[in-house]
Simulated scan of single mutants.
Amino acid sequence: MSPFLLTRTLPEDATDAVLRADVLHGLTRTPKALPPKWFYDARGSELFEEITRLPEYYPTRAEREILLARSSEIAAATGARTLVELGSGSSDKTRHLLDELPELHTYVPVDVSESALTGAAEALLAERPSLNVHALIADFTRGLVLPATPGPRLIAFLGGTIGNLLPEERAAFLRSVRSLMDPGDALLLGTDLVKDEKVLVRAYDDAAGVTAAFNKNVLSVIARELDADVDPDDFEHVARWDRGQEWIEMRLRARHALTVKIPELDLVVPFEAGEEMRTEVSAKFRQAGVRTELASAELELTHWWTDTEGRFALSVATAR
């Protein structure tokens, strides 16, 4: 079996330190906000997997449709010998790409979760014993150093996750990706597209209430990790389409006036009745906008594919 290497670029206590910083900053600003990455503890990951199977939530199905139909074209366009996946999680969708990259030498999954990386690597190597896997425990939004692997490299950022970044964060992220790329390397980017408002809102406010539970899970994380005196039932889930920004906002709205105490941070946070705290933005894109944002990072859009209903896009960009 080929080697499995695991490299940690995050300190052991990095997650705790970042959570503390994010909560302190987010709950003392106006309006209040928390980053969506804190949804994803073990329970949050389970809930998100359930969301991807809901009838209202189309992005996962739409992206998988494109990967199944176009992976051979992606392989031909990139000729990748190394596949780097940012935010790899279970590496489930990546399997479609791995099957179509005949010259692939190394797979580099990047994630903050060591358990997710090791679990995915074990499953992949059981299926593909000749594959080299070099996993990185890293936060790709905070600077990333890739291992020395054969080129050309294909850097994949799937799932429409780029939409969770604010415009200035997206610009910084794309510049950081460009800095990792050598001549011949490429970026494979998944972007959810602008569509009917009702379709979008339903995808983030499903009838079964799974997304509501997922949204509130961030409060459970804070309660457990920071000993916060907060009850998720004191908040209700809100999903709203912002036409001007062309993004969905998920928020938590206080059902009544309350106070959240976080002893670990020596922090007392008052909420007025009806006050909303933003927990996620999910930007939706148009092809022209994606091209412009890539160009600003000195990346050139060379290929663009959508699912049959035009809901989601995968694109390939190369260094200019």
Rank of each mutant, 00 (worst) to 15 (best):
L144Q: 15
A172Y: 00
A123D: 10
D22P: 14
P11F: 04
A75L: 07
L226V: 14
V84S: 07
T302W: 03
V145N: 05
R251L: 15
L10A: 11
T9S: 13
A319M: 06
E272C: 06
A273V: 10
A317T: 11
S115H: 05
H256I: 01
H237D: 03
R240T: 12
S315I: 02
T306A: 01
D99G: 10
D233S: 14
A69I: 09
I137G: 02
F235I: 05
V201F: 02
H303I: 07
G163D: 01
R278P: 00
D205G: 07
A207G: 11
I137M: 04
T78W: 01
P31I: 06
D307E: 01
T161A: 03
L124E: 04
A121Q: 02
L67M: 14
H237A: 05
L301H: 07
Y204C: 03
P3R: 13
V210L: 10
Q245A: 15
L5H: 13
K32P: 01
R255W: 02
K216Y: 04
S282N: 03
D182K: 12
T141S: 10
G119V: 00
R224N: 00
A135N: 11
F48W: 06
L189A: 12
S90A: 15
E249G: 12
H303K: 11
A17P: 10
L83K: 05
Q287D: 03
L24P: 00
F271V: 00
G143C: 15
T94A: 11
Q287W: 02
K198T: 09
L219A: 00
E63Q: 13
M250P: 03
A76L: 11
G184D: 04
V177F: 09
R29D: 07
V110F: 05
W247Y: 14
T28W: 02
E50I: 03
Q287F: 02
A288L: 09
V290P: 04
V199E: 11
A17K: 14
G310Y: 01
L97R: 10
L136W: 08
W247G: 00
V268P: 05
V199M: 14
G26Y: 01
L166M: 13
E276M: 01
R53I: 06
D111N: 07
I155V: 14
F173R: 08
K198R: 12
R29W: 01
E56N: 04
G159N: 04
G79L: 07
E73D: 15
E225W: 08
G190T: 08
P55T: 13
R95F: 01
H237C: 04
A77C: 14
T279S: 02
P102M: 12
P59V: 06
A172V: 14
S282L: 00
R81A: 08
E300I: 13
E56P: 05
S45A: 15
A203N: 04
G184T: 07
R64D: 01
E293A: 09
L252K: 07
E309I: 02
P183Y: 03
A239V: 11
L68A: 07
S130W: 12
V194R: 06
D92C: 07
I222M: 11
R251Q: 15
T161N: 12
S115L: 08
A317R: 10
S282K: 01
A21V: 05
K37M: 12
M250I: 05
A80V: 12
H96A: 11
L5I: 13
P55D: 10
K37G: 13
D229L: 11
